[in-house]
Structure formats: C-alpha cells, structure tokens
Simulated scan of single mutants.
Amino acid sequence: MVQAASTEQVGSRYITIAFSYATLFFAGGQLIGPAISGWLIELTGDFRSAIAFTCVGLAIGLLLTYRMRSFPPEPAIIDREQQLHAQRP
C-alpha cells in the first residue's frame, strides 16, 4: 500500500524513483526494527519496552503521513518550445 501510494504522490516520470525509495526505507525498517526490539527485550527483560518502541514508531509514521502533501500529476517543467511560444506577442 505504501508503494502504491508513493507512486500517486509524484509525476509519472518519477514513479520508479518513488517506488525505489519506498522499498528501500521499508527494507531498512524491516532490518532495524526487530534488531532494536530484540535489544530492548534483552536489556529490560520484558516485552513492554519493545511494544512501547513499536507504538512510538507507529505514532511517528502516522504524524508523517498527515504531513504528506499531494503533488500535481506532472512536474512543473517548462520545456524550451513552450517557453518560446510564451514569449511571442
């Protein structure tokens, strides 16, 4: 779902880049999250700290989602031909 949503936030020429970034950060979270949770469980001896860590991570993700904004379907790039037509009287 995140990957599909990331492709809707950018112009069509940037879809592959957005998809790659979403995949990269998802994979990083899948690698780092369990490692930190395991470390917290070993450090404290119970699961409460790991669950609290998960809740904080989810809250940060929710806040970042609310801050996301929509972009136009195509980037605002004026090519040379459009620029020439705009300058003619």
Rank of each mutant, 00 (worst) to 15 (best):
M1D: 09
V2P: 00
A4C: 08
A4F: 13
A5T: 13
S6P: 05
S6E: 07
S6T: 06
T7Q: 09
T7N: 09
Q9N: 06
G11I: 03
S12F: 08
I15K: 15
I15D: 04
I15H: 13
I15N: 07
T16W: 12
T16R: 14
I17S: 10
I17G: 03
A18M: 08
A18L: 06
S20A: 15
Y21A: 07
T23Y: 02
T23D: 13
L24A: 13
L24D: 04
L24P: 01
F25L: 14
F25V: 15
F25I: 15
F26P: 01
G29S: 13
Q30S: 15
L31K: 12
I32N: 01
I32W: 02
P34S: 11
P34W: 14
A35H: 04
I36E: 08
S37W: 02
G38P: 00
G38Q: 14
W39G: 01
L40Q: 03
L40R: 11
L40T: 00
I41Q: 13
I41F: 01
E42K: 15
E42S: 15
T44D: 01
G45Q: 07
D46A: 10
F47I: 14
F47C: 06
F47M: 11
I51K: 00
I51F: 07
F53K: 07
F53P: 05
F53N: 05
F53Y: 14
F53Q: 02
F53V: 04
T54Q: 09
T54H: 05
T54N: 13
T54I: 10
C55N: 12
C55V: 07
G57V: 03
G57D: 03
L58I: 11
L58K: 03
A59W: 05
G61Q: 04
L62Q: 11
L62N: 09
L64F: 14
Y66I: 10
R67W: 14
R69K: 07
R69T: 07
P72D: 04
E74S: 05
E74I: 01
E74M: 02
P75H: 11
P75G: 06
P75M: 08
P75I: 01
I77N: 12
I77K: 06
I77H: 09
R80P: 03
R80A: 13
Q82Y: 06
Q82H: 00
Q82P: 03
Q83N: 06
Q83Y: 03
Q83E: 08
L84T: 10
L84G: 04
L84F: 01
H85P: 00
A86P: 06
A86K: 04
A86N: 02
A86Q: 13
Q87V: 06
R88V: 08
P89C: 05
P89V: 08
